[in-house]
Design a protein around this nucleic acid. Structure first.
Lengths: 153, 153
DNA sequence: TATATGTCTATATTTCATGTAGACTAATCC
DNA sequence: GGATTAGTCTACATGAAATATAGACATATA
């Protein structure tokens, strides 16, 4: 399960990417539009900024902006901002170079060997889907639904 | 991150599968051999039994046994015993037929669409690796290490 | 200087994972 | 059939983490 942070972060970024004609967004506006607790969103956007995904400006006329184009932002990078590396077991984490506390022999640990394949599979998906792709998938579903409704009429 | 339950469960099953010449195992013996808190292991083995992965007999001469051969037990089935279905978001869970509480429009949710691909990728790995495969991978690594040591001498 | 806006620190609350204690049930053996 | 062995069940303790909230602070603009 991914955290609410990740979901809220993705929703906020989706909102910013999909809203054309604006490039700067207030925390309060994003929070209201996406139904995210404002104070919680503050911390989330800050995390995204610290990970190079958003940029910000203080003061009147300020707000948050996407640091890169939606097609240049992978879902992997976004989710990793909140979940750390996506290691299914500690010993596969690259950021915290640590072994699993209970492991008796890490070199030959079968769990590690299998989970390594899982980690690769997850990364293969998330690092090859961008924020733009995600919005496009969503839009495609919306079109499908619209057409079904037209057909029904 | 998978839970300690899953890791302990996999370790216990690995121990049982790899120990030849015995088919019934005492909780206490498994706990000691694999360094797992005994009381905790009790609950874990019970879960595995309730999921059809282990069988048990009470009384003297009793203990736990694998319900199927290691080649017939997938890592997916084992891990799912502890983690539930491996849905990265609630709305993709099949067991608890629930939508994500914060979702505004589940039909077109981009997060759901992307995470569906993640779930498929994870299942593709875990449902195609068996307990026997896991042990074999481990043994292969052990052989590699032995050969490196021979070479060093 | 006043105001708008993001940033930081601290804390409250809840939930969950991990682990422990002890009573209970069932099977075997003598 | 009583003693012993071994799994099963219920309850709880503890600690960590996720989800928020409050309020003070810093900085940019007009």
């Amino acid at each position: 399960m991914i955290s609410m942070r990740s979901k809220y972060g993705l929703k906020a970024l989706g909102y910013m990417a999909r809203t054309t004609g604006k490039d700067s967004f207030l925390i309060a506006d994003i929070a209201q539009a996406e139904g995210i607790p404002k104070k919680f969103l503050e911390a989330i956007l800050l995390t995204l900024k610290n990970n190079g995904i958003l940029s910000s400006r203080k003061g009147p006329g300020g707000g948050y902006s996407l640091a890169k184009s939606p097609a240049a932002l992978t879902i992997g990078a976004i989710v990793r901002s909140f979940e750390g590396d996506l290691a299914p077991v500690q010993c596969l984490s690259e950021t915290q170079q640590a072994s699993c506390p209970e492991c008796l022999d890490e070199d030959t640990c079968g769990i590690k060997l299998v989970m390594s394949d899982v980690a690769s599979a997850v990364s293969a998906v998330l690092d090859n889907v961008t924020l733009a792709d995600m919005l496009q998938k969503s839009e495609f579903e919306r079109q499908k639904r619209t057409q079904m409704m037209d057909f029904a009429i």
